[in-house]
Design a protein around this nucleic acid. Structure first.
Lengths: 245, 245
DNA sequence: AGTTTCAGTTGATTAAGATCATATTTATGA
DNA sequence: TCATAAATATGATCTTAATCAACTGAAACT
């Protein structure tokens, strides 16, 4: 056994409930595990996927985090998603066989590479896997629609509260603390994603701290009042809630 | 032969190049044609797909147009897309087997219904069809991302110009005039989709007319200067273009 | 036909967030 | 370890599009 083998397998991966292994039986899982390649770690700013490049593999995030973004004709960058462990990156290439968006590491990160050709062969043999891929794609569509709604109808405060609530929830699903976590992205990137400026993000974070919703220490965020964060991210304020009760 | 049979078949459908038939051979096309049901016409405001309902079929628009929208927890409606002939409606249900969004007719319209179970059986037999379904889904994701970018980074003028340019282009792809067309949606619905108010849409349309980009007569739009419309929808203004040259 | 409702236009005012400017703190690299 | 760059914070001002209001025209409905 290779020294560098840290015994990472789908069978024992703590994110298998969020990843391709969902709904595969033991045999299928073994086959999947065999075709997946573990790549060496990527560092901050390293490019994992380049827009326009040919679609060769899907990537599952094992550790760390990524952002994916598209670039407009006039050179502006639009972040379309942040990816945490268990997330799959690269679906948007299934249509044209070329990636629509680029993805870079936000911090030192590890990924599992799933070569497309072998994945397709497996999909042929295991209908459950095919279904899971469809599900992941459909989820992507859903998430896009939700985000669109957010950007369209909600104001700055609601957008950032939604972002925080969602992060907290996603960390929780992954077995990390949902009360305290590090932002691997900059305020600038958060703003880009939410359609706001850095200054607005900065001001709001200070305000949320004053209002005792969160505690901010640089990149470290502590969620103090999740209930209120969630309600207000939905446009429901305290006075409104009292009225309804 | 039934009186109501207008001899509508995938083989002769003028939108087959945009719809599921893409890349099917004659035999496959015949099978597809046989499982598709032509429904009777829907009228304005008629519900085609209801959010949360069980996924039974995909629908291909044959004539007329639809909007699809999601409804937030606080009851607000967010339009996520407009559908023209050749478009497929219902993909967002593949994940959960329940529809995420509702779709209603914007005018008297016809659809072809593709029962999911039979479609799945066909997908099993014809890899090209499976690929086409994937492609359609991936296109949905892409379109969502583009729209997100639009809502995030562009100002009112650019959003509406983009909307007009895109409509013109889509009409053209479908063999309709790209210079003159009817808006089947209200100003209100355009605003909802683009994240703007009715008043803003109205004001902009009058302004675009004054600037000789378009000619507006109620629902009828005439595209006068597509070039400028497109350039300005991308944030490129005349003075900027001159500088670059 | 006439009334009511809905869609669209236009103006005045306001508010939210962008932009500009500057300071400060934190990272990064020679 | 210091120097430089990048990220963050905060105040002042400006711009954009929302909001509020009033009016007109077009459908829809007995």
């Amino acid at each position: 056994m290779n020294k560098m083998d840290f015994s990472i397998h789908c069978q024992s991966c703590s994110f298998s409930h969020l990843c391709l292994p969902v709904s595969l039986d033991e045999n299928e899982l073994k086959t999947l595990d065999e075709i997946i390649e573990r790549k060496k770690p990527l560092h901050k700013h390293d490019l994992l996927v380049e827009a326009q490049s040919k679609f060769k593999s899907l990537y599952a995030v094992r550790s760390g985090s990524f952002k994916s973004y598209i670039t407009t004709s006039n050179g502006q960058e639009q972040i379309v998603g942040f990816h945490l462990p268990g997330d799959l990156i690269g679906f948007d290439a299934l249509s044209t066989q070329h990636h629509q968006s680029s993805a870079t590491a936000l911090e030192t990160s590890m990924v599992c590479e799933v070569p497309y050709t072998t994945l397709e062969q497996m999909a042929e043999r295991f209908p459950t896997l095919r279904k899971q891929i469809m599900t992941c794609m459909s989820d992507d569509i859903k998430q896009g629609q939700e985000l669109m709604m957010l950007l369209n109808k909600r104001k700055a405060e609601e957008r950032l509260l939604y972002f925080l609530a969602q992060l907290s929830q996603r960390f929780s699903e992954r077995g990390f603390s949902d009360k305290q976590f590090n932002l691997s992205m900059t305020r600038n990137e958060i703003g880009n994603y939410l359609g706001l400026t850095v200054e607005t993000i900065s001001r709001l974070l200070t305000r949320f701290q004053k209002e005792n919703l969160i505690r901010v220490d640089g990149k470290l965020i502590e969620i103090i009042d999740y209930e209120t964060i969630y309600n207000r991210s939905q446009g429901l304020h305290n006075d409104l809630l009292i009225k309804m009760a």
